[in-house]
């Protein structure tokens, strides 16, 4: 009996109390969990035209192939001098690009369609981006439809070659004109 008791006492002494260890580790863990904001960078991608090629790059474009999107100082949207709510822009630009009913005033072919963006110095960036978003959204919707027609897949599941064949027929050409008079 005595021997056994001694043995257990010795064991108790040699044991290191690790229960608070876990608590400390938890605290540090929670700190890193909170700081680890894994929000990947996201946004609207765009390609700027080269510097020495302003609007002069697009010479000899027929007027009917140009969709002129105007943003005034307050960020209001005008197409053909008509004030248009932004919610309608996507449909309008889609119709302009595809021109399903072969209307005289809209683009000849989707690959000839060009969107011109006009804005002023005072135009709010927020309105600029939401407008841009709608035009790009129109192209994305068109690509999605074409992808389904041609390949039977969603656009995002296509491979690079298939995507390229769609881009060839429906190129996204958006030109910006800063501060027109």
């Amino acid at each position: 009996m005595r021997n056994k008791q001694r043995g257990s006492r010795r064991q108790q002494k040699s044991q290191f109390n690790t229960s608070s260890f876990a608590d400390i580790a938890f605290l540090v863990l929670i700190f890193f969990l909170v700081t680890a904001s894994k929000t990947p960078e996201q946004g609207i991608k765009a390609k700027l035209p080269p510097y020495n090629c302003d609007i002069g790059c697009h010479f000899g474009i027929k007027e009917r192939n140009i969709l002129r999107v105007n943003l005034d100082e307050k960020g209001q949207l005008f197409i053909n001098k008509k004030n248009i709510p932004i919610t309608r822009l996507r449909k309008i630009s889609k119709e302009f690009i595809i021109n399903p009913n072969r209307v005289e005033a809209l683009s000849e072919k989707p690959d000839r369609a060009i969107v011109y963006f006009y804005y002023k110095k005072e135009t709010p960036y927020n309105e600029y981006l939401t407008t841009m978003n709608e035009v790009i959204g129109a192209y994305h919707e068109i690509w999605e439809e074409v992808a389904f027609e041609r390949f039977g897949y969603h656009y995002k599941h296509l491979n690079q070659n298939e995507k390229r064949s769609i881009w060839n027929n429906f190129p996204k050409i958006i030109t910006e004109v800063e501060f027109p008079n």
Binding site: K45, K47, K121, Y128
Partner: peptide
Amino acid sequence: TMGIVSDVKTALRKSGRLKVNYS
């Protein structure tokens, strides 16, 4: 407003960085 944004974009075009992302 677009004034400063457009200045920055022009500067980017001048220095040949054409790919941009509007966050």
